[in-house]
């Protein structure tokens, strides 16, 4: 029997090759980012919003881009009725971790594209570049972990695509607040101590979600009907 890491790697590779063939997630996320940044830059032409507002707008665009693209990695299995096959081929924890890895990579690429576009189109100046990179890295991990959990929870629901956003957005509100707190320092406002506190909080959220995800996937996807007694 292959180890859990071999199964995780297999699922991760499968997700990447699926994405490479269709490029649906990246196209949807990338297009949304471009449209949102262009709309924001156009609305605020000749004005320069304060750093906190810039950090807020940036984080919200990233949040919505993630909500549009990430749950798809989980929901597509449900839609194509391949989830049962996946459960037969890999342990639930491995399936979750493999898919989470693919989500993380996807959101990191989206965040990179978004930050380049944002800097280029809105002419925002980055005061502390390392904080921008650190905040985006930790925020991407948190977004991927939380939305992977949401993907597991809403698969099987009637209106799963809408429900994923409806369930995911409230869960991500505290992380969004923390991310804005870290990014506003990167854009030149606030103190380093407060930014580092926000970053640590974001990191703790990421750890909590990554730790809980495999256990939840095991509870939701386990193949033992005798345990389900409702």
């Amino acid at each position: 029997m292959p180890s859990i890491w071999a199964e995780t790697l297999a699922i991760f590779t499968k997700e990447l090759s699926t994405e490479w063939r269709s490029r649906q997630g990246l196209l949807a996320g990338g297009l949304f980012s471009v449209v949102a940044v262009v709309a924001m830059a156009f609305a605020g032409v000749n004005t320069r919003p304060p750093p906190t507002l810039q950090a807020g707008m940036f984080t919200i665009v990233l949040l919505f881009a993630a909500c549009i693209t990430l749950p798809r990695v989980f929901l597509i299995e449900d839609e194509q009725r391949t989830i049962d096959l996946l459960r037969l081929l890999a342990r639930p924890e491995a399936a979750f971790l493999g898919k989470y890895g693919a989500c993380k990579l996807q959101i990191i690429v989206t965040a990179t594209i978004l930050s380049c576009l944002y800097v280029f189109l809105s002419g925002v100046s980055i005061a502390i570049p390392w904080m921008l990179v650190a905040a985006l890295a930790v925020e991407s991990v948190t977004l991927a972990a939380t939305l992977s959990i949401v993907g597991v929870l809403v698969s099987g629901a009637r209106n799963r695509w809408v429900l994923a956003a409806a369930v995911g957005l409230p869960l991500l509100l505290p992380q969004t607040t923390l991310s804005i707190g870290a990014l506003r320092f990167a854009f030149g406002e606030g103190t380093q101590t407060a930014a580092l506190q926000n970053l640590s909080g974001l990191g703790l959220f990421a750890i909590a979600m990554i730790s809980f995800g495999p256990a939840l996937a095991n509870a939701m996807w386990r193949l033992d009907p005798s345990e389900d007694r409702l």
């Binding site: 929870l153 809403v154 869960l171 509100l173 959220f205 979600m209 939701m220």
Partner: peptide, 13 residues
């Protein structure tokens, strides 16, 4: 299961 999972996840935020 989903409701129980969500309840446990939402405890963190």
């Amino acid at each position: 299961k989903a409701s129980a999972g969500y309840t446990l996840v939402m405890l963190v935020p």
